[in-house]
Design a protein around this nucleic acid. Structure first.
Lengths: 258, 258
DNA sequence: CGGCGGATTGAAGGGAATCAATGCTTGTGG
DNA sequence: CCACAAGCATTGATTCCCTTCAATCCGCCG
């Protein structure tokens, strides 16, 4: 650990990078799991749920209301590490579900707790939850103040940005393994209205969504729909350390994090 | 710090409590600030914003879209500590604004970074952001799948629970220093519809909201509106350490954390 | 007393939900 | 190899919750 009483004027960048490496190394030692669509990786009432890193495919975090309605609060893409807070809180309280064939590694809560005693890793964990909360904030802003048109635009741009930033894609085309019903549960709309809106985006030549393939035709146009929504670009550089270790993937075949 | 290779089977409770104490102690040494309504404590583009602890009154975190529309993503009550992630991320990206006369203490980002090298404090910080993200998740669920009626019910219950848990109130009556417009910006509704819905709650004898005083008349009835929404009751016990140091406050006069 | 911000209330329009069919793909079995 | 089932996507018709527009009211303060 950093000795003495370090004062990082320029920020905690070094610790962030180093902690990120340690965390990823620990995860890399864990067995690789492969599951099918709708597999529940973590259930809401699991005790001491593990920390999970997505490697291939996507997953979502969701809550299910008593009447069966569901809210998908976050989408997880390859490279995302979720649940570092589980180690502290002891309960996830939400489900984590695969949206399709998905590969991941998991770190037990106990192991995660041990790792957290390393300040660098703790800092990194802090940044990880911070990023998740940032996504949550952006999402809240979108569904609070944008209509269906804007929400879907924000959603597509958000996923696109995240994939690109992680070097999982290079062009504005990617695989999105979600049904329209899942998008609806994420955006606070109905399946029917999501469908109509996607079709409308197509008509406006902003984006094409066919089956599970998204092709963004007019990025600037889409940005126009979500003007003023917090820009993800604020994410600090150290963030980038998340990839670079791994080769970039491409297009329609679901992005893969090795 | 905890020596050796500690394995907390029962969880990180001790560290959480100890870290919480240290953090609060550090905050207690900072000067007390008092501001008026609409004062901006942290602006979206501030560099290295401080960690803030609310002592008296309430505040909110918000994003403002390009066209001026606003989304209030979180409400902060006395005792809440926000921005521990600022120390790591270096940017808040959202505004933190007082909803009325408000008292708080602030810890500079640099000092906060120093504190984070203490694993116990880091664990506590992790729990703090975890709690914030939990609130965000609950809120997303509410605005994604509940109508105006349910959203307001969930909102009132949520604030009530938080105040009660922190021993700031003992009965289902409290001061809520928010205008209907602010509630609207928080719940994704319009001021007009918030007004109608509050009035409807009154008609149903579920809750009375007059001026800034909330009186919950039928807690079970309100719970019926939000059936299935994640229960805040899951928050771990160590949490409770947040208060107990301070005497409880009461009623219409805004709750105060000493 | 006049003015101002917030709260209320009415009327009309619109975006999204709901209800209901009908395509389209893919996987399975005869 | 084709029929068939199942799940998802698509589309039309209708309903309704919420927004928008517009006044009016009310409590507070200089």
């Amino acid at each position: 650990m950093t000795a003495g009483v370090p004062i990082f004027s320029p920020g905690a960048s070094e610790d962030l990078l180093s902690g990120g490496r340690s965390l990823r190394r620990a995860l890399a030692e864990q067995p690789y799991h492969m599951v099918e669509r709708d597999a529940v990786i973590v259930a809401a009432d699991d005790r001491d749920p593990p920390v999970v890193q997505i490697h291939r495919g996507m997953a979502y975090r969701s809550f299910t209301l008593a009447d069966g309605r569901r809210a998908i609060v976050d989408i997880l893409i390859p490279g995302d590490i979720v649940g570092v807070d589980h180690a502290v809180l002891g309960r996830a309280n939400h489900d984590i579900v695969a949206t399709g064939r998905m590969g991941y590694r998991a770190l037990s809560a106990a192991t995660a707790r041990e790792l957290m005693t390393d300040p660098q890793i703790a800092i990194r964990a802090l940044a990880l939850i911070g990023e998740a909360r940032w996504r949550a904030d952006r999402h809240i802003t979108a569904i609070t103040r944008l209509d269906a048109h804007g929400r879907i635009g924000a959603f597509l741009l958000g996923i696109y940005e995240r994939l690109r930033r992680r070097d999982l894609i290079a062009r504005p085309t990617f695989n999105l393994p979600l049904t329209q019903e899942q998008m609806a549960d994420h955006l606070g709309l109905t399946l029917v209205h999501v469908n109509r809106t996607l079709r409308r985006l197509r008509g406006e030549r902003l984006a094409l969504i066919d089956r599970q393939v998204v092709i963004i035709l007019d990025i600037d146009g889409l940005h126009g729909l979500v003007r003023g929504l917090p820009e993800p670009s604020y994410l600090p550089e150290p963030w980038m350390g998340e990839n670079s270790d791994w080769p970039a993937s491409e297009l329609p075949a679901t992005a893969v994090l090795r």
